[in-house]
Simulated assay, not measured.
Amino acid sequence: MTLLTFRFAPSPNGELHLGHAYSALLNQKLAMHTGGRLLLRVEDIDTTRCTPEFEAGMFADLKWLGLGWEEPVRRQSEHFADYEAVLERLIREELVYPAFMSRGEIRAFIADSERRGRDWPRDPDGVPFYPSADKALPVKERKRRIAENAPFAWRLDIGAAMARAGKDLTWAEFTDETLSATRPVEARPQDWGDVIVARRDIPTSYHLAVVIDDALQRVSHVVRGQDLFSATGVQRLLQEILGLPRPVYFHHRLILGPDGRKLSKSLRDTGLAALREAGASPDDVRKLVGL
């Protein structure tokens, strides 16, 4: 019998807050309830913002909460070779292309288009789609720019990738925290345009790394925040074109601040370290997040 596998996968780019506590504790609760496994993954591909100090604080917070996980912990920064191998495959299969436009050039291109009366499409986060001009560059020109160390990112050709997938994409989404029933959800990766899958200096992005890691770690259940619901469509597309297994998903409620907004690491909202220093107990945290 195959054990169900859950994972909690934070990024050490700030202090953990109540929202992280809820996600971590919910994953632990579900793993224990089903007799499954709980993995901890450190998503630290952003080598600029992720620091050893934040990682140490993260481990301290999780241990204080009483979270237990299987060893060894997978750190994404130690597995760039895994991601690079998959990126090379996407390049060979012409499913990605190098995108050279700077943020200023993108803004100018879009502004010019909007002046001409065209409404520019935006993704679910409100970010404008990347212009399609670079997809038309000849291979010789692409190679010349790369050889001259022009800044670029690898973007997924969403049209080519969806044509390769060749069918309607869905995923199975649990309807509540009991994981007793699922419903099919239509994946709409086209709502994101040509997303970044890797950068020149880092051979991956969140989307690419997460689907590779989930497959390598045999994650069966992805339990994470509602803020990532729409992004699952991109990840389902990557799973399909790469022939990776697809987990089932549950996008749980978000823990909101007193003003009703999503908690943020950058604003140090309800940080676990601060709560601990103020005398809160792990049980207090469980009550605060409704567990």
Rank of each mutant, 00 (worst) to 15 (best):
R49T: 01
R49I: 02
R49G: 00
T51G: 01
P52N: 08
E53R: 13
E53I: 10
F54E: 00
F54N: 02
E55M: 07
E55H: 08
A56T: 09
G57H: 04
M58I: 06
M58V: 02
F59R: 15
F59V: 09
A60F: 02
D61F: 03
D61Q: 04
L62P: 02
K63Q: 14
K63S: 08
W64N: 02
W64Q: 03
W64Y: 09
W64E: 00
L65T: 04
L65Q: 05
G66C: 07
G66R: 11
G66T: 10
G68T: 15
W69R: 10
W69M: 09
E70M: 11
E71T: 11
E71S: 13
E71H: 12
V73Q: 06
V73S: 05
R74K: 09
R74C: 12
Q76D: 04
Q76G: 04
Q76N: 07
Q76K: 11
S77G: 06
E78A: 14
H79I: 09
H79Q: 14
H79N: 15
F80E: 02
F80H: 10
F80Y: 14
A81R: 12
A81H: 15
A81T: 10
A81E: 14
A81K: 12
A81M: 07
D82L: 13
D82S: 06
D82Q: 10
D82E: 13
Y83K: 13
Y83E: 00
Y83W: 09
E84L: 13
E84F: 04
E84A: 15
E84I: 05
V86L: 12
V86S: 01
V86M: 10
L87E: 01
E88G: 01
R89Q: 15
R89N: 05
R89L: 13
L90N: 01
L90C: 03
I91F: 04
I91S: 01
I91E: 08
I91W: 06
R92L: 10
R92D: 13
R92W: 03
R92H: 12
E93A: 04
E93S: 02
E93D: 13
E94K: 15
E94D: 14
E94I: 03
V96R: 08
V96D: 00
P98N: 06
P98W: 06
A99H: 14
A99Y: 15
F100K: 12
F100R: 12
M101E: 11
M101D: 07
